[in-house]
């Protein structure tokens, strides 16, 4: 049995009016992809561009631009491949988070990615490059892009999980080099949440789930109340409130650690189960010496 420590707990029931929302299937087609690409200034002229398709996504490539849409989530990625995450050998970004956020908000508005009322800043990241000579230990470091991640907000509640995010990538001049948007459209309110479960039930669910699985120590860093949106390649029909509990799994020595996350439906009348059932590990044939 692992020792499970809750480093920070949510003591009280969240005071929020929430709903369970039904989501619109994205209905992605090549035609929609072209429309999306054109919104980013790409010509969409098939004489100049080409399509790529795999199981999960359609991509349209034209010149240095790449526009991808994911079939089941509708998630969108736009990149200027000649500049996105690329070191031009001289850029060294000095502008601060506030400047980056303001510029990213302008991009969100320009490309109609979302209403600014529906998002909040999640994180500002920076892409660094460095080098060092082994013999002399001389080297350099620079910052070559800034990625601003926005988190969706519904009913004044943030959307947690891999989805419900917009990321804008900026270069030294504050010009956009890439955009990620994973933001499923809401069709309607499917049903109101009649009552919220106590956060203590979420903690009990976490204990039940992880006690079967691990043997040493788990530190649960916090409990967040949020709506939950899945990743790029996942079908999602409903958006519902959850408790999200990021945690750290420690080894016996405490030297080897791994992060993970537990999610528990917060409504007393949830739709389905979000946390996947623990995987059954297959027995492998023994390797010969």
């Amino acid at each position: 049995m692992p020792e499970i420590k809750f480093l920070s707990t949510l003591e009280n029931l969240p005071q929020a009016r929430t709903q369970i929302y039904r989501l619109t299937p994205p209905g992605i087609t090549r035609g929609k992809l072209i429309d999306t690409a054109m919104a980013f200034g790409v010509s969409g002229n098939l004489g100049r561009g080409r399509f790529q398709e795999d199981e999960n996504k359609y991509t349209y490539l034209e010149g240095q631009f790449s526009v991808t849409v994911y079939k089941v989530s509708g998630g969108l990625r736009y990149q200027d491949i000649s500049r996105w995450q690329i070191d031009d050998g001289k850029s060294n970004i000095k502008y601060d988070d506030k400047t980056a956020i303001k510029r990213a908000q302008e991009i969100v508005r320009k490309y109609k990615l979302a209403s600014l009322k529906e998002l909040r800043v999640l994180k500002v990241s920076r892409l660094h490059v460095g080098s060092i000579e082994l013999a002399t230990r001389k080297g350099d470091e620079r910052i070559i892009d800034v990625g601003i991640a926005f988190q969706r907000v519904i009913d004044r509640i943030p959307v947690d999980g891999p989805g419900g995010k917009i990321v804008v990538y900026l270069d030294q001049q504050g010009e956009v080099t890439g955009i990620d948007r994973l933001w499923r459209n809401i069709k309607d309110a499917y049903r109101p949440v009649t009552k919220l479960r106590s956060p203590k039930l979420a903690e009990e669910d976490l204990r039940r789930y992880w006690s079967k699985h691990t043997s040493y120590q788990i530190n649960v860093n916090e409990t967040r109340f949020a709506y939950f949106e899945l990743g790029w390649k996942e079908t999602q029909k409903y958006l519902q409130p959850v408790y999200v509990m990021p945690m750290t799994i420690l080894s016996a020595s405490g030297r080897s650690v791994m992060k993970s996350v537990h999610v528990y439906e917060a409504a007393t009348n949830p739709v389905g189960k979000i946390m996947p059932t623990p995987k059954i590990q297959p027995r492998l044939p023994k390797r010969q010496e």
Partner: peptide
């Protein structure tokens, strides 16, 4: 002789 790295 040299290492060059990139991180976010």
């Amino acid at each position: 002789n040299w290492l060059a790295w990139k991180w976010r």
